[in-house]
């Protein structure tokens, strides 16, 4: 077997493994594994409704922040 192929195989497999590891670490850092049951319940229960909810919350947050910015601009001091 040529050294080039071995190098390529090792390189790619390590890289793939490292990607998986990076994803796992990202999940850990952002607290996605803190609540194991919720993680699973998401798969069991979440549907269109929940998605809509999430969008609604996102919009609510934007609106609240927007409002705050505006209030600040209105006030000259």
């Amino acid at each position: 077997m040529s050294a080039g192929i071995i190098a390529m195989m090792l390189g790619i497999s390590t890289l793939l493994g490292a990607l998986g590891l990076a994803a796992l670490l990202w999940g850990l850092r952002t607290g996605q594994f803190d609540d194991t049951s919720k993680f699973l319940d998401g798969a069991r229960f979440d549907g269109e409704e929940e998605l809509k909810d999430a969008v609604m919350m996102e919009e609510k947050r934007k609106k609240a922040l927007e409002k705050r910015r505006k209030d600040k601009r209105v006030m000259p001091d």
Partner: peptide, 26 residues
Amino acid sequence: CAACVWLNEKVLHQTPGVIEATINYT
């Protein structure tokens, strides 16, 4: 149970002025 978490989050989400509500079941 998970349904309790769902209910609480849902109700809080629908409450005006609540921007974020996350409940850890564990």
